[in-house]
Design a protein around this nucleic acid. Structure first.
Lengths: 343, 343
DNA sequence: CAATCCGATGGTAGCGCTGTCAATAATTGT
DNA sequence: ACAATTATTGACAGCGCTACCATCGGATTG
């Protein structure tokens, strides 16, 4: 014979059905489509479930139905505040739907990403949300064989695996630099940390804006592959100053670095914005609160999360968007730190 | 007859076994216990898997084996930086093990927590990590019927569901206040936001330390249920000043509030630490970088995550710790913001 | 050389649920 | 009133994998 007898303590759907006096399949329908049951049976199954404390077996459900109600989310970092807002949008939007969110963290490792995508594929998620558009060829292959709607978030590009929600990091950086140039600043430093693909694109926006104004100078660029911290902002700024003293503005690829620069200026008695303009990226909450308040590029992270989930759920349920790529844009939040020098 | 024929495109373990010239059960063992196979069969199965692009079906695996290799993690917030570090520890520690992490976010809602725990139970996780010790009676019941190792993190208490890793928020706050008192400060304000159970315990530490010195005054306490932001730190501090001008120190329940207080001081020309001492909680990275650098209570969040995973995995594999409750303590990081007034 | 053990492999029977289709009961139209 | 349609319900098989033995050859032992 096979394995040992089913323990009498185990409560399966069959037991519930028996107690309710219906067939197992009717009890099954109680969970998936209660409206299809007559009111009397619905009530009987409901009370049987409660009486027995029935806990459905999701594995059996998934095996029999060939699907799950899980939306996978793959992000590169939990430490980076940027993703906290995206995730807030994702969770807010998924709440009230039948789908639950399963989060996975690549920690900026493309190997880890491949591994996680493979794991997700084996779980047959109902939908998937992944960060960025620079997946490896291998990861892309996994995504294409995922057999469910996929949304890439955080940036936009020409060849979506399926759908995309994001904005142009290039344009956003370009706009920020243009703003600084309009304030009459000429020597604009670039501080970059953990140069992931999106940060790289911000650099390109900076570079091209500077080149357009014939002001690009490699000496103005300081980058590192180290992850971002506030302290690092101060360090990179010190490096920049050591390299060339003639600096009248700094563009930081994120707000933590910008805050670090501000602190370093306070330490060195550099007046902001008189002696130096500071512009960050993402517009985290503290930027408006700093003294002086810090200019930044607001990215619509919460909305990005919301839209990503909505698009995925709609696609799961057969309502595909007409346009697979959604650009949520950005807003330049001009504050005291980038006011003109004579103000 | 039953459902339609299995699509010929679908690759199951049977197909792999056939190609490798072994029985399905041998192919199955290839994944779970490769050492048990002879070298020749191992190689044959390996190449068959690669040739067919076999993707195991986790639902079938879970159904047949009655278990999964998922460790569930339940936290109240992703926005709160504190959890980012805990999660980093969790992910670091789980890497290299066979277990994968599944994250769920209650958003500080106890109803959401009950729902998520029920969902986890239906998934039969191998282990579970939950935040805090203040679960509802219902949640606790679900945890107790989870049938897998459970570790509560972030704080410690007397009645663990199973295991615990954390520290005493009460003691930490008490120590911070004692330090401020030792600097000769007498009127120490308390700023608190989103008064979750752990923040509540920090308040109790503050209150008792102040009472011990006969300095407790309800007018010094400003709290709100609103979630924490840097800006809110400034607002609460302004409220405190409006209520009583004689303040020579502020204890903030977290570092974001402390930074907000610092900015507000800069705006109001209040000299720190001469006119006011500021002490935060958690010791986020920016505290050391601020000007002046800000005193805080370092909590061992990364270690907490690491230990939680290790304890859970050990317990899954039958190595239960002798002592179910692990206290990781805290360190007071004294910096410029709480130096004596005459310095 | 029989008795014993051990490592490698396979056969069988489910795990608990749902898709498919058929059957039945209730309702409607003419 | 009777056929046609629509709501409910049920029977059956099987999703893809693994637990539980059974087996079988070969090594070890006395």
């Amino acid at each position: 014979m096979g394995r040992k007898q089913t323990k009498s303590g185990k409560i399966r759907l069959t037991e519930v059905a028996k107690l309710a006096g219906v067939s197992p399949i009717t009890a099954s329908r109680f969970f998936r489509n209660p409206e299809a049951l007559s009111l009397s049976k619905r009530e009987r199954v409901d009370s049987a479930v409660k009486e027995l404390g029935y806990v459905p077996n999701l594995a059996a459900r998934a095996l029999a139905s060939h699907r799950t109600e899980v939306i996978g989310v793959v992000i590169p970092s939990l430490t980076n505040n940027v993703f906290a807002d995206v995730l807030r949008g994702i969770y807010d939007s998924s709440e009230g739907s039948r789908y639950s969110i399963q989060l996975a963290n690549t920690r900026y490792s493309i190997l880890q990403e491949e591994k996680l995508l493979r794991l997700f594929r084996a779980q047959k998620p109902a939908g998937l949300i992944v960060t960025g558009i620079n997946q490896t060829a291998e990861s892309r292959k996994v995504l294409e064989t995922m057999n469910c709607p996929v949304t890439q978030i955080m940036e936009i590009g020409d060849s979506p695996v399926d759908m995309m929600v994001g904005f142009s990091h290039y344009d956003a950086a370009f706009a920020a630099i243009s703003h600084i140039l309009e304030q009459g600043r000429r020597r604009i430093g670039f501080l970059g940390a953990r140069m992931d693909p999106r940060v790289q694109r911000r650099f390109e926006g900076y570079r091209d804006a500077m080149k357009t104004a014939s002001l690009f100078d490699p000496n103005l660029v300081v980058t590192t592959s180290v992850p971002t911290t506030v302290t690092l902002g101060g360090t990179l700024f010190a490096d920049l100053l050591a390299r060339t003293a003639e600096i009248d503005a700094v563009f930081c690829v994120n707000d933590d670095l910008a805050l670090g620069v501000l602190f370093e200026c306070q330490r060195r008695q550099i007046a902001v914005p008189r002696d130096l303009a500071i512009v960050g990226f993402n517009d985290l909450e503290f930027m408006a609160s700093a003294v002086p308040s810090l200019t930044s590029v607001r990215t619509n992270r919460y909305e990005m999360g919301r839209h990503a989930v909505t698009m995925v759920i709609d696609a799961i349920e057969g309502r595909r968007p007409q346009e697979p790529v959604l650009d949520l844009g950005f807003q330049l939040m001009v504050r005291e730190s980038s006011m003109p020098q004579n103000s």
